[in-house]
């Protein structure tokens, strides 16, 4: 774990709501290693996207706040302590992001080419001609057919899959060290999903960037990623390499998630589902946050927060079961 390019330590992002303080992200720590794809898995509302937004300093203002004890280390700089101006220099240049909705993530009034050139013009202060040439190269790299003509197309003239390719190219043009992909394939057809994932992997290998891949799709994780963090209710409950996690899912939540995946080789009438709902974060129950839905919950689980247990090297679980 020494070559971590991005180190997140005790990240807490809280939201002020009318009902009280909502700890959307509550003290998570993990590393993203250079040249690897790290997955952040969890159901809706578990704080995955907020973690991504916190890294880039794009937490919705003024309701959201990154608490002062949080640290996000990127190349000897703590991103949470940087000014807006310095952060803007890092965004898109060193750390960039791919969004969930390709249909609305491109500005409808500009051509694809102009939008691709924007990060280059901002960060590398390139001339128009240079930026154009490079943008074209990246459009080719993400396999957009007929890139020369696509440069002067408007977003509405492209299909969703093509737009997501353009978004990937846009995230790549400045050769960032880290790319955050926030459910990049959720809004696409299944056939196109596979292409985009393959593309992401290829491009990642070519440029040797690290990717933080946010998803709720464990199938995608198994295929694409190297490390996995499973999030539940704003906390990380299990952290492991992909092999370890699928071999030996230790937290009851992870086990439940895996069990609820549909399988081709197993004919069941009803899919397994985890009972209950994510608890309301404003009034967090004492003890383990998963206790109310956990099939293996004990007395202790409802009283005290579970410890971090290393069950093997590089496999961390937050659960009383392994104490």
């Amino acid at each position: 774990m020494s070559d971590a390019i991005l180190e997140i330590k005790n990240l807490k992002t809280y939201f002020k709501t009318r009902k009280g303080l909502n700890p959307a992200v509550d003290g998570i720590s993990f590393n993203i290693e250079a040249g690897k794809i790290t997955a952040l898995v969890g159901e809706s509302g578990s704080g995955k996207s907020m973690t991504a937004m916190s890294i880039l300093g794009l937490v919705p203002q003024p309701a959201g706040k990154i608490m002062p004890e949080s640290e996000i280390w990127f190349e000897d700089q703590d991103l949470t302590k940087l000014s807006e101006r310095t952060l803007a220099k890092i965004r898109g240049n060193e750390i960039s992001m791919i969004f969930q909705e390709p249909m609305t993530s491109l500005n409808p009034v500009y051509t694809i080419g102009k939008q691709l050139m924007e990060p280059l013009r901002i960060h590398q202060k390139m001339s128009k001609a240079d930026a154009r040439a490079l943008a074209l190269k990246y459009l080719e790299m993400v396999r957009v057919p007929d890139p020369e003509r696509r440069m002067s197309s408007y977003p509405h003239q492209l299909s969703g899959g093509l737009r997501q390719r353009v978004m990937i190219a846009m995230a790549m043009v400045c050769k960032p060290k880290v790319i955050i992909a926030d459910e990049p394939t959720t809004a696409l057809d299944v056939t196109i999903q596979a292409q985009i994932l393959k593309l992401l992997k290829d491009v990642q290998e070519q440029l040797n960037t690290a990717i933080l891949f946010i998803t709720h799709d464990l199938g995608v994780v198994a295929e694409l990623c190297d490390d996995v963090c499973v999030m539940y209710a704003g906390q990380i409950v299990e952290k492991a390499t992909v092999e370890m996690l699928f071999e030996n899912p230790s937290h009851p939540y992870t086990a439940g998630l895996l069990k609820s995946l549909p399988r081709v080789d197993d004919d069941v009438d009803m899919l397994y589902s985890i009972e209950g709902m994510v608890p309301n974060l404003i009034n967090i129950p004492e003890g383990c946050r998963f206790a109310s839905r956990c099939p293996k919950a004990m007395e202790k689980c409802r009283e005290k927060e579970p410890p971090k247990v290393m069950i093997e090297t590089g496999h961390e679980v937050h659960c009383w079961l392994y104490e």
């Binding site: 794009l58 101006r85 803007a88 965004r91 240049n93 960039s96 993530s105 924007e118 901002i122």
Partner: peptide, 23 residues
Amino acid sequence: EFVEAAKSIGVRKWDILWRHIFP
């Protein structure tokens, strides 16, 4: 989202207003 995307590639506030929202 394109405004969010513009922020994520490092465009500053006034540039976002002028170049992304105004048009």
